[in-house]
C-alpha cells in the first residue's frame, strides 16, 4: 500500500497502489493536503493500481474534494475498475466526483 505523487504539467497526480482503507487513508490525506498547502490547485487521483476502497477511504476522498474546492482547486479521479465503479455507484459518489476513464482524459479535462 503506497501513494506515489508525480507532477504532470500543472497537475499533481497521485497513484494509489494497493488498498485505500482505514489503515492508510490518513497518509493519502496528508500527502494531498501538503501539496495543497504548497499552493497546488489541480489534483488527479489515479486508481489503475488500486485493489479495493472501504468507507473510510471514500470518506477521505470526499474530505479532500471539499478542501481542494475550498481553496479554489479541482479534483479528478481516473481509472476506476468495474468493482470500484460499482462502489461509487452504490454510494452515489459517482455524482459527486468528476471521474474519467483514463489518466489522459482526466488530464485533458482540467
Amino acid at each position: 500500500m503506497s501513494f506515489a505523487i508525480t507532477k504532470e504539467a500543472e497537475v499533481v497526480v497521485v497513484d494509489v497502489e494497493g488498498q485505500l482503507i482505514v489503515g492508510n487513508r490518513q497518509e493519502l490525506k496528508q500527502k494531498v493536503l501538503d501539496e495543497l498547502e504548497r499552493g497546488e490547485k489541480k489534483f488527479l487521483i489515479d486508481f489503475s493500481q488500486t485493489g479495493y476502497i472501504d468507507s473510510s477511504g471514500l470518506g477521505v476522498l470526499v474530505s479532500l474534494s471539499k478542501k481542494i474546492r475550498e481553496q479554489g482547486g479541482e479534483l479528478r479521479l481516473a481509472n476506476l475498475n468495474d468493482d470500484l465503479k460499482t462502489l461509487f455507484e452504490l454510494t452515489k459518489l459517482d455524482t459527486l466526483f468528476q471521474i474519467a476513464d483514463t489518466r489522459e482524459r482526466a488530464l485533458e479535462s482540467f
Partner: peptide, 17 residues
Amino acid sequence: PTTPANVEREDGRGLFL
C-alpha cells in the same frame, strides 16, 4: 448515505456498504 443531505458526508457508509 446516498440522500442529497448525506452524500457529501465523510462518514456513515460502513454499515450501508
